[in-house]
Every structure is written in structure tokens, then in C-alpha cells.
């Protein structure tokens, strides 16, 4: 039972052509992915791009309309029950029982996976969470961040070989997020494979690989470090006085596609490096600011990518609403 994949060196997740339609809307379209054992795979994409849907298909919660694949060596179409035994899935929305106490929730999960030494495991999980003295508190009365931490603890109870984490750190404070990622690292070092969706760039940087999805289609899939080069985005850093005024005048200038404020700096990026370079040199000569060419960071890259696919499915969603409003008027 303990992971056929582990023994013969197969990838932990290998899916091809995954497609999911809701009505006539194709939400995930021909999605391929290969996740090696022990990797931390970041899953990025704008809101509504199909991340949650893809993750749900991988662990058998949704049936794909097309495509197939394996998870931990089990067929995602026919052996989802076996996959479920070895996967820890943390849902995007808190989905433990709010009217059960913290301990009761953990107890429930431990029972569901038929774990031995249940009391001991639950007690240990409570200790590690730092919730041992509040174990009797109803889960629904926890703060948002604590709910996330409880949900993570719950999906780790049965020591899964694969973790599917859907925006696990949304609403979690920076210290807890750091602890959280330390734990993910630790798990990964012990051979646990992690697929994690996130909107935080500082978390994307921590991933070994990143898959970027928009409109249900995967646009990028590469080691995290290789992505900026792959996208081919040139970036100039601007420091000095009057940045707000400069940002206004830069909009629409040749080669400038994106202007992002980073604290006391302005990052000006574009895919046409030559045009952008010319603009930069001209402005550097004309103004008091200091312009420096720099390597594009993941953050610039993803702002760039997301700007291109800003409102995923927004048009599809807007159409019926607009129609209804029209009829009402």
C-alpha cells in the first residue's frame, strides 16, 4: 500500500490531457503534469483559472471529462479510493466541522483513516499545533489563520505520501507562514511530495517547480529559477524622488508594459528589451531617478502573466448577469 510509485521511481503525479467542463464552459483544458517524488510543486494562476478543479480531479473528487493519469501509482479514474488513503488534501475553504471541537475533528480524521495509536497521534498533533490547551474549543470559533493551521494538521495525521494543498496559507500571519513552509520543507526532505497552490510570490520562490495555469490551460511548467528567463521579461529598477509622477508619465511609453511599485522602488518591465532599454536610458538622462537593469523576479513575471489573463472566465460569468439586469430594467 505504501506508494507503488516510491518503489519503482515513477513520478508521484503523472496526468495527461485532464479536461473538465461545467456546462459548456471548459474549466480545465488538456492539462498535463508530472510531479517527481519529494518535489514541492507550486501551482499558480489567477482566480478562477482552474487550480482547485485540477487538484480535485487528481484526488478523485471530480471525474475528468477527458484525460487520465496516475497518482502514487494508482489510476485516478478507477483507483481513487486507494489514492485517497495516501493523500492529504487541504481544501481551499475550511471544510472541517465547525460544530466539532478541535480534538473531535482530529479524532474524526484519525478514525476515518483507521489510524492506530489514535489518542497519541491526536495528542501529538495538538502539541505541535500549540492548541493542546484549547483542544475543547469548537473549530468554528477559531480565527481564520488558526483554522488553516488546524486543517493542515488534520490532513497530515495519516502521514500521507502526497500533499495537495489548496491555498493553505491564505490569511495566515507571516510568522506562521514561515513555520508552515519550514514544515513543508521538512516533509519534502523526508520524501513527501507536495503540490501547493498559492497566490504569494514569496511562497512561489520556495517551490522547486512551478506550473502556471490560466483559462484552464497550462502556460508554464518549469523549475522556479528558470521561469523568468523563459518568460523573457526585461526589468529596470528605478530609485529616487518623484516616483509616483514618473509612473504616470511612463504609462504607454515605448517598451513599457508593466510598472509595479516595490516599496521605495519602481520596477518597470516589458518583453521588448530593446525598446524598454531605450526608454530607460532616455528617462535616466532626463530625470533625477536612478535606473538599473536587473534580472526579472518571479513577482514581476507573474504580475506580467496575470495581467495578460486578468479576468479568467470573467466574460462568461458576466454575460448571464448582464442579460438578467437587462431584462429587469
Amino acid at each position: 500500500m505504501s506508494g507503488r510509485a516510491a518503489e519503482n521511481g515513477q513520478p508521484v503525479i503523472q496526468v495527461t490531457g485532464l479536461t473538465k467542463r461545467f456546462g459548456d464552459k471548459t474549466v480545465v483544458d488538456g492539462f498535463d503534469m508530472t510531479v517527481p517524488k519529494g518535489a514541492i510543486y507550486g501551482f499558480l494562476g489567477p482566480n478562477g483559472s482552474g487550480k482547485t478543479t485540477t487538484i480535485r480531479m487528481m484526488c478523485g473528487l471530480l471525474t475528468p471529462d477527458a484525460g487520465d493519469g496516475h497518482c502514487l501509482g494508482y489510476d485516478i479514474l478507477t483507483e481513487s479510493r486507494r489514492i485517497k488513503e495516501r493523500v492529504g488534501y487541504m481544501t481551499q475553504r475550511f471544510s472541517l466541522y465547525e460544530d466539532l471541537s478541535i480534538r473531535e475533528n482530529l479524532d474524526f480524521m484519525a478514525r476515518m483513516y483507521r489510524l492506530d495509536r489514535r489518542r497519541q497521534r491526536v495528542g501529538q498533533a495538538l502539541e505541535e499545533l500549540g492548541l493542546a490547551d484549547r483542544a475543547g474549543q469548537l473549530a468554528g470559533t477559531l480565527s481564520g489563520g488558526w483554522k488553516q493551521r488546524l486543517a493542515l494538521a488534520a490532513c497530515l495525521l495519516h502521514e500521507p505520501a502526497l500533499l495537495l494543498l489548496d491555498e493553505p496559507t491564505a490569511g495566515v500571519d507571516p510568522k506562521a507562514r514561515r513555520d508552515f513552509w519550514d514544515e513543508i520543507r521538512g516533509l519534502s526532505d523526508r520524501g513527501v511530495t507536495v503540490l501547493v497552490s498559492t497566490h504569494y510570490m514569496d511562497e512561489a520562490v520556495q517551490c522547486d517547480f512551478i506550473a502556471y495555469i490560466a483559462y484552464g490551460t497550462k502556460l508554464i511548467d518549469a523549475p522556479a529559477a528558470a521561469i523568468p528567463r523563459q518568460v523573457g521579461l526585461a526589468t529596470w529598477k528605478v530609485e529616487g524622488p518623484g516616483l509616483a509622477e514618473l509612473a504616470r508619465t511612463l504609462a504607454g511609453a515605448p517598451g513599457v508594459e508593466q510598472i509595479a511599485r516595490f516599496g521605495a522602488e519602481l520596477h518597470v518591465s516589458g518583453t521588448d528589451a530593446a525598446a524598454l532599454g531605450a526608454t530607460a536610458q532616455a528617462r535616466a538622462a532626463a530625470g533625477p531617478q536612478r535606473w538599473t537593469r536587473q534580472e526579472s523576479g518571479l513577482e514581476e513575471v507573474f504580475i506580467h502573466l496575470m495581467a495578460q489573463s486578468r479576468d479568467n472566465f470573467a466574460r462568461d460569468n458576466a454575460a448571464p448577469d448582464g442579460g438578467a439586469a437587462g431584462r429587469r430594467a
Partner: peptide, 14 residues
């Protein structure tokens, strides 16, 4: 409705 179904059926429960 509360979303707990997702956790429930993500376990191997029958």
C-alpha cells in the same frame, strides 16, 4: 452546504 462534504469524501470513506 457547509463544504465539509469535500473533506468527508476526500477520505477513503464508503
Amino acid at each position: 452546504e457547509r463544504g465539509t462534504m469535500e473533506t468527508l469524501i476526500a477520505t477513503p470513506v464508503r
